[in-house]
Design a protein around this nucleic acid. Structure first.
Ligand SMILES: [Zn+2]
Ligand SMILES: [Zn+2]
Ligand SMILES: [Zn+2]
Ligand SMILES: [Zn+2]
Lengths: 164, 164
DNA sequence: GTCTGGTATGTTATAACATAACATATTGGA
DNA sequence: TCCAATATGTTATGTTATAACATACCAGAC
C-alpha cells in the first residue's frame, strides 16, 4: 500500500526519484515543473489545477495564468510522474514511478485522500475484456470512490466526535 | 456485447424499457426527461451536456439554460438509465438497465463510440483490492480509452482511404 | 559572435463544463 | 379550494481547460 500524502522523507525520496528519471531520460525538469511537482507531492490530497495556480501565484506574489500551470501539469502527467484523476479533475503523485502505467485509484469521499494500487489481475481482466470485442486499449481509468479505512471507522463510530 | 449507437429498433426497445421501469417505480419520466433520453439514445456517440442543451434549444427555437439540461441528465443518471463518462464529461445510455451498477466502458478515441460491458470478474477484482486496504467502495469508474475494432482496422490499413 | 531553430514560459482572451439561488408552474391529495 | 411536493424556468456565477500569439532562453551551426 502506498499513500498520496507522504511523510517528509517519503516526499524527498519521491522527488529525487523523479529527478533521477528525468536526468536518465534527458527530460527537462525545469524550476516551474519542479515546483509544481513539489506542490503535488506535499499536498495531503490531490490538487486541482486552480489550487496549483493559486499556490504558484502566492509564491510569486503575482497572478499566474492557467496555461502556465496546465503545461507543467501536462508534462508531469505525460511522463507518468503525476496522475490526473478523471472523477475529480485533480492531480496526484504517481506511486509507481517507472512502470509507464497507472494502477487503480481509491479515492476517499470524506478526507479526499487517494491511494494508488497496482494489481496485475486487474490489468489482465481489463485486457481480456477488451480483447473479447477487438478493442485496443491505450489508456485506462480505474477509480473507486468510497471511504478509506480511517474514515470508514470514523463514520461507523460517530461517538468519537467531541460533544461540545 | 452492446453498442452505444443503437439501430432504430434497439433504440425504441431501450426507451420502452426505461418507460416501463419508470412506470413500475413511480418515477416521473416527464416530456423534458424523455426528450433528453431520446437524444442520448439516438446519438452515435456519447453527448456532452452542452450538446444536449444545443439540441434542446434548437427543438424549441429558443435557448435553453444549462440547469434545465443538467437536471434532466441528473435524473437519468441517478436512476441508472444513463451513465456519465468521467474521462470525457459525456453521457451515454446504460446498456444494462435494471442492474443498478455500471460495467466498464470502452471508449474509442477515433470515432467516439462507447461500449459498456459487464464483467463479474472485474467487480470481484475491484472489491478484493479495496478490501485489502480496508476501503469501502461506493462508486466505481472503469473507463478504457483506445481504438474500437473498426477503427483499429482502419488505422492499420490506411490504404483504404481514397487517394484524391 | 551571431544566427537559427527548438523548447519553455508569459500573456490575453475565450471556450467548455457545472451549479447556486430564486421564481414560476404543475400536479395531486387533504 | 388550499396546500405541499415536484419539476421547470431564469439569471447569474463558479469552475475547469485551451487557443493563439508573444517573449525568453539555450544549444549547436556557421
Ligand atoms: Zn501511477
Ligand atoms: Zn478518508
Ligand atoms: Zn450502465
Ligand atoms: Zn472507433
Amino acid at each position: 500500500m502506498t499513500r498520496t500524502a507522504k511523510t517528509s522523507g517519503d516526499h524527498r525520496d519521491w522527488v529525487k526519484k523523479v529527478e533521477d528519471i528525468c536526468e536518465a531520460n534527458a527530460l527537462q525538469l525545469t524550476p516551474l515543473r519542479r515546483q509544481v511537482l513539489e506542490l503535488i507531492s506535499r499536498a495531503k490530497a490531490p490538487l486541482g489545477a486552480y489550487a496549483v495556480i493559486d499556490q504558484l501565484s502566492q509564491s510569486r506574489a503575482k497572478s499566474v495564468a492557467p496555461p502556465t500551470a496546465y503545461r507543467a501539469l501536462d508534462f508531469l502527467v505525460d511522463h507518468g510522474f503525476v496522475v490526473k484523476i478523471a472523477s475529480t479533475n485533480a492531480y496526484a503523485p504517481c506511486d509507481h514511478l517507472g512502470h509507464h502505467h497507472h494502477g487503480m485509484l481509491l479515492i476517499c469521499n470524506r478526507c479526499g485522500r487517494a491511494d494508488e494500487i497496482e494489481n496485475p489481475k486487474l490489468d489482465a481482466v481489463l485486457a481480456e475484456t477488451a480483447a473479447r470485442i477487438g478493442f485496443r486499449p491505450q489508456r485506462q481509468v480505474v477509480e473507486i470512490e468510497g471511504l478509506c479505512g480511517a474514515c470508514g471507522e470514523a463514520v461507523a463510530a460517530p461517538q468519537a466526535l467531541p460533544n461540545g
